[in-house]
Design a protein around this nucleic acid. Sequence first.
DNA 1: TGGCATT
Length: 460
Amino acid sequence: MNGSEPISIHPESGNMKDQDAIKLFIGQIPRNLEEKDLKPLFEQFGKIHELTVLKDRYTGMHKGCAFLTYCARESAIKAQNALHEQKTLPGMTRPIQVKPADSESRGDRKLFVGMLNKQQTEEDVYRLFEPYGVIEECTVLRGPDGNSKGCAFVKFSTHTEAQSAISALHGSQTMPGASSSLVVKFADTDKERTIRRMQQMVGQFGIFNPAIALPFSTYSSYAHAQQAAIMAASHGGYLTPSVAFPATQIHQMGALNINSLPPTPMTPVSGLSSPPANITTSAVPSIVTPIVNGFTGIPHQPNGHPAVETVYTNGLPPYSTQSPTAADTLQQAFTGVQQYTAIYPATTLTPIGQTLPQPPQVIQQQQQREGPEGCNLFIYHLPQEFGDNELMQMFLPFGTVISSKVFMDRATNQSKCFGFVSFDNPASAQAAIQAMNGFQIGMKRLKVQLKRPKDASRPY
DNA sequence: TGGCATT
C-alpha cells in the first residue's frame, strides 16, 4: 500500500493458474527493472499469473530477483529452457537465472496431518492423500505402545502437490471419533520444531528461572516490573486486587507471580517497553484478565517459591461454599467483568486509547491433562471472551486446577462458550459445582457439572 | 462433553 511495497501482477478472475503451476525464481535482474519492465520479456512464453520483484522488507530496496508464476505449467518450462543462463540483461555481469523457486522443489512438501481417527493406518492416510500427487512417504505417528497419536506425516514429490492437498483436505471432514475437523498443513521446519520442543519443556517443568531467561538483569527487577504492572492495571478503574486480597498478599503476588502476569496492553510502565512476552499464559491479551486476576490471585507456593510444576493454585486453602465472603468476592468480580465487557466489545483486544505495539507473542501452552475420576468439570454458557486462562482463574478459588480448556471453533477461532476444568481432587470439583453452577454472568447462567465420561452412551 | 499431536 505504501510506495515501498512490491508491486505484483495480482491473480484475478480470468487469471487462474494450473493446479500444478511452477513458481519460478528469476535472478540476475538489473535493479532498475520493475514488474512492468520485466513483463514483456516473460510474456512471450505465456500468460503471467503473478510476477513479483523481491524488495527488502525494511528498506524497500530492489533485491535484483523476482518470483514468477505463469498460468500454465508449460509456460514456465518454456521460459526456463529459453532464458535460464541464456541471456544477460543490460548492466549485469552474469546471465539471467530462471528456475523453479526453492519452495517448489525439496523444501515445503511434507505435510502434518492432524485430527485423524486413531484407528486410521498408513494405508488409510495414503488413500486419502493419493489423489493430490505422488506420495513419497506416509507415516502415522505412534506412541511407545504403538497406538496412533491421531496424526501423520505425508510427503509429496512437490510443493504444489502438497499445497493442493492442503486446499482440498484441510478442514474438509471430521473423522469419526475425532473432536475436530481434519488438519492438513506443512510440517514444522527444524527451527519451528526446536521452538516447539522448548515450549513443551516449559509446559512440563513449569516456569524457568526468570533471572536467567528474561531481559532483566536481576530477579528483583523482574519482580519490581511485575508489581508495577499490577499497579498499572489496578489504576485503570477496574476491580483492584485489594478488593480480594490484603496488602501483604498483593505484595507476594508482585514478587512471586510468574504464571499470570497481567497482559501487555494493560501495562504502560515507563522504562519498560513491555513485560516479557514469553512468560504470559494468556493466549489473547484478554480485556477481562486483569479483573479476573484481581479476584482470584496468583499461583505461588506457601514456601515462598514459585511453583515448579505447572499447576495452578490460588495459594489459599480452598474455601468452603458456605463462606459469604468468598461468594461476595466472586459476585463483585463478575460485576466488574460485566461492566468491563459492556465498555469494550468482545472483538476489541486492545483497550481503547492504547496503541502499544504487539510484541512477538510466545504463548506458553498449558498441558492438557485429565484429572482423576470425579475431578473433571464441563462448563457451559461461558462468556464469549473467556479463554483457557480466564476459565482457570474463575475456578482457582476451589482448589488446584491442573487443566482448563475452552472449546474453540476451528473455522472462526471463536469460543464455543463451553469448556473443561480439571482439579486434582473430587472435593474441589464438587465445591466448584456447588458454588458456580447457575452462577449468573450477564444474561447467562453457568452450567457446571461433572464431565461425561468419554465412552458415555449417546442418548440418541 | 477435550486431551490440538511435529518422525
